[in-house]
Amino acid sequence: MATQIEYTTGLDKFNRTSNVVNVFFHLIFILLALICIIPVIVVLSISFSSEASIRESGYHLIPVAWSGEAYAYIANQGTMILRALGVSVLVTVVGTVLGVLLTTSMGYVLSRPSYKLRGFLTWVVFIPMIFNGGLVSSYFINTNLLGLKDSVWALILPLAVSSFNVIICKTFFKSTIPDGLIESAEMDGASQLRIFFFIILPISLPVLATIGLFLCFAYWNDWFQSMLYIDNQNLYSLQALLNSLMSNVDALAKNAASMGVSYAVLVATMPKESARMAVAILIVLPVAFAYPFFQKYFISGLTIGAVKG
Results as ranks from 00 to 15, higher is better:
Ala185Tyr: 10
Leu208Thr: 04
Ala209Glu: 02
Ala72Gly: 14
Thr103Trp: 00
Phe24Trp: 09
Pro202Glu: 08
Arg55Ile: 04
Val267Tyr: 13
Ser49Thr: 05
Arg83Gly: 12
Pro206Phe: 12
Leu266Val: 09
Gln225Ser: 08
Leu27Pro: 04
Asn165Gly: 11
Tyr236Gly: 00
Leu34Glu: 07
Glu6Val: 12
Ile211Cys: 08
Gly260Trp: 10
Ala209Arg: 00
Pro63Val: 02
Gly58Ser: 05
Ile41Asn: 12
Ile283Glu: 03
Ala185Phe: 07
Tyr139Asn: 02
Ser204Asp: 01
Tyr108Gly: 04
Tyr263Asp: 13
Ala251Asn: 07
Val207Phe: 03
Lys272Leu: 03
Leu252Asp: 00
Asp12Met: 06
Val152Arg: 04
Lys13Phe: 13
Val136Gly: 00
Ile127Cys: 06
Leu159Gly: 10
Val97Cys: 13
Gly99Pro: 02
Trp123His: 11
Leu181Arg: 03
Tyr291Phe: 15
Ala70Lys: 01
Ile195Met: 08
Gly58Tyr: 06
Met259Trp: 04
Ala218Ser: 14
Gly309Trp: 08
Ala160Lys: 03
Ser191Leu: 00
Asp250Gly: 06
Gln192Tyr: 05
Asn15Val: 06
Tyr219Trp: 07
Gly305Leu: 07
Ala2His: 10
Gln4Gly: 12
Ile46Trp: 11
Val265Asn: 12
Gln77Gly: 10
Ser53Val: 07
Ser262Gln: 13
Ser67Phe: 05
Ser114Tyr: 13
Gly260Arg: 12
Leu245Ala: 00
Phe14Ile: 09
Arg194Thr: 10
Arg112Asn: 10
Trp123Gly: 09
Ala257Cys: 02
Met187Asn: 09
Gly86His: 00
Ser244Cys: 06
Phe197Ala: 07
Ala160Val: 03
Gln225Pro: 01
His26Cys: 11
Ile281Lys: 01
Lys174Ala: 10
Ser262Pro: 07
Ile28Leu: 14
Glu51Leu: 01
Thr9Glu: 09
Ile199Lys: 05
Ile281Leu: 12
Ser138Ala: 11
Tyr229Val: 02
Ser226Trp: 07
Asn255Ser: 10
Lys254His: 05
Ile141Leu: 11
Ser105Tyr: 04
Ala268Trp: 12
Leu61Ala: 08
Val64Asn: 13
Arg16His: 14
Ile200His: 00
Ala185His: 06
Glu183Gly: 06
Glu273Gly: 01
Pro113His: 02
Ile37Asp: 07
Ile62Asn: 14
Ser114Met: 14
Met227Pro: 01
Asn15Lys: 13
Arg16Pro: 05
Asn243Phe: 15
Gly86Phe: 01
Gly212Ile: 00
Ser137Gly: 06
Ile203Arg: 06
Gly10Lys: 10
Asp231Gly: 11
Asn144Lys: 14
Val97Ala: 15
Leu135Phe: 15
Val166Leu: 02
Ile62Trp: 15
Met259His: 00
Ala33Asn: 09
Tyr229Ile: 01
Ser57Gln: 06
Asn132Lys: 09
Leu44His: 09
Phe25Gln: 10
Pro292Gly: 02
Ile230Gln: 00
Gln233Phe: 02
Leu102Gly: 01
Tyr236Ile: 03
Leu61Cys: 06
Asn19Met: 13
Phe126Tyr: 13
Ser137Trp: 15
Leu90Phe: 15
Leu193Asp: 04
Ile35His: 07
Leu201Pro: 11
Ala275Arg: 03
Thr8Ala: 11
Gly301Val: 09
Thr171Tyr: 05
Ser184Lys: 07
Leu34Gln: 05
